[in-house]
């Protein structure tokens, strides 16, 4: 009987924990919706901001976030793919652990460090300044490891026999890559791309010194100009917590950002699940 009581207590506690965790998500999403939705209207989505963000819309900020994110993805993807293919096809198995260790190390670097070093190395060292291109390179470095991990997962899930069957026909490394590994890595590439884009879109610390400017917002005229982003827009408006109009706009921007990031993450999760299901067959 005592066992039964203990079990009931144990499961109730676990259930409460799970319920808390899930309700946290709903509270957070609900809170963002509740505060953000009143700000959203056609003008908010299509107009530039005025009065240092307290009035007007977030059109340029949204465009800036998307621009930075896509450029970062464009830079990071080929490097991630190349890294994984090289380690699978050209390196011996004994290097695998070391390679993984380096990728995970890079993945663990706090993003604020990317922000600080990125500015000194790329912004000043390469004379690219606070700009679209500086921010994109920094974000690319930041999302590179998660892309590499996704691609690696897809390739590692491929049964060995396919590779053997291809090599036994006398296929060289390049043809092995082209005919077998590239098609096979596609789901991993897509998962990694969407995960990376989501991370890049949500990141603030890495770009607040390096890519964005708050005032004088418009579309950047070139890659060496700063861009406005939703993330830094929210950050600045959050500092004006006393001004209710600024705060409403911050919530509106947050709602757009969360929608964008969650859409990207859900897409990544969906693709990954398809791959897992296929791998189980």
């Amino acid at each position: 009987m005592r066992v039964r009581v203990k079990d009931i207590c144990f499961f109730s506690l676990c259930l409460m924990a799970a319920a808390t965790a899930i309700s946290l998500l709903f509270i957070i999403i609900g809170y963002i919706l509740w505060h953000g939705a009143p700000a959203i209207n056609f003008a908010f989505l299509t107009e530039g901001s005025r009065d240092f963000g307290a009035a007007g819309g977030v059109f340029y900020q949204t465009t800036g976030t998307v621009l930075l994110m896509f450029t970062a993805g464009l830079i990071a993807l080929p490097i991630a793919l190349g890294t994984v293919l090289f380690s699978h096809v050209y390196l011996g198995p004994s290097y695998k652990k070391t390679t993984d260790l380096f990728i995970y190390a890079l993945n663990g670097v706090p993003t604020i460090i990317f922000g600080l070093l990125g500015y000194i190395i790329i912004g000043e060292g390469l004379h690219l300044g606070v700009s679209w291109v500086t921010g994109s390179i920094i974000l690319a470095v930041m999302i590179l490891p998660s892309m590499a991990v996704s691609i690696d997962e897809a390739l590692s899930a491929m049964p060995h026999k396919y590779r053997d069957a291809a090599l036994v026909l006398g296929l060289g490394r390049w043809h092995l890559i082209r005919t077998l590994l590239l098609p096979r890595s596609l789901p991993g590439v897509l998962t990694g791309l969407f995960l990376g884009l989501a991370r890049a879109a949500g990141e603030t610390a890495a770009i607040m010194f390096t890519a964005t400017a708050f005032s004088g917002v418009g579309l950047p005229r070139g890659i060496s100009e700063p861009v406005a982003t939703l993330q830094t827009h929210i950050l600045v408006l959050a500092g004006e917590a006393t001004n209710p109009r600024a705060l409403t706009n911050a919530w509106g921007a947050a709602l757009i950002l969360v929608t964008l990031v969650l859409a990207l993450s859900l897409t990544a999760m969906f693709i990954r699940r398809q791959v897992r299901m296929e791998a189980e067959i």
Partner: peptide, 18 residues
């Protein structure tokens, strides 16, 4: 190596079709 494998083919115990 690819040349060798093209001259000396091998068929596995279990067929592995792509």
């Amino acid at each position: 190596l690819e040349g060798l494998r093209r001259e000396v083919g091998l068929v596995f115990q279990k067929p592995c079709l792509f």
